[in-house]
Amino acid sequence: MEQIVSEGLINSVMAKEAFVTESRKKLIDLACLMVVTLRQGGKILIFGNGGSAADAQHMAAEFVNRFLINRRPLAAVALSTDTSIITSIGNDFSFDEIFSKQVQALGKPEDLALGISTSGSSMNVIKGIEVAKEIGMRTAVLTGGIAGDGGELGRISDIFLNVPTAKTQHIQEVHLWVEHLLCEIVEREIFGEE
Rank of each mutant, 00 (worst) to 15 (best):
K26G: 07
G42K: 05
A140C: 10
F99N: 02
N11F: 15
K43Q: 09
K167A: 03
S94I: 15
N70Q: 09
L38W: 02
A140L: 12
L142N: 07
K167F: 09
A53P: 01
I28R: 08
E7T: 04
V141K: 00
Q169G: 05
E97S: 09
V103A: 00
I98H: 05
A53V: 02
S157R: 00
A78I: 02
G41P: 06
G148A: 08
K101I: 15
D29W: 12
V36C: 04
D92L: 15
E110H: 04
A15H: 05
S84V: 13
S88P: 08
D158R: 01
G154K: 01
H175T: 02
D82Y: 15
L176C: 08
E134V: 03
A15T: 01
K25L: 12
L176W: 00
S157L: 01
L9F: 15
A56W: 10
D149S: 08
G150T: 09
G107M: 04
E187C: 11
T139K: 00
H58W: 05
L182T: 03
V5Y: 14
N162G: 00
G90L: 06
I86F: 14
L114E: 09
S52W: 07
I89L: 12
A61F: 15
K26N: 12
S117H: 02
N11M: 09
F99V: 06
W177K: 04
S100C: 14
R39S: 11
M137V: 14
S100A: 15
Q172N: 03
G107R: 04
D92I: 15
G90P: 14
K127R: 10
F93N: 07
C183A: 13
L153T: 11
V13L: 14
E152P: 03
V77P: 08
F47Q: 05
G115A: 05
V186H: 10
S121P: 01
D29H: 06
S100L: 11
F63Q: 00
D149E: 14
T168R: 06
S119W: 11
H170R: 03
Q172M: 11
A166D: 15
A61I: 00
S84D: 14
T118Y: 07
A54N: 12
F19A: 02
A147K: 13
M1C: 01
V5W: 15
A105H: 06
M137A: 06
E130H: 09
M14A: 08
A56F: 14
V5L: 14
V125I: 11
I116K: 10
K133G: 13
W177D: 00
V186P: 13
S23H: 08
H58T: 05
L142W: 03
G48S: 10
Q172P: 12
R188G: 08
E194S: 13
S84A: 12
A56N: 07
T143K: 00
G151T: 11
F47W: 14
N49C: 03
F191E: 07
S6K: 11
F191S: 12
G154V: 01
F93M: 13
L153R: 00
G145I: 02
L9S: 11
E17D: 04
G51N: 00
H175A: 09
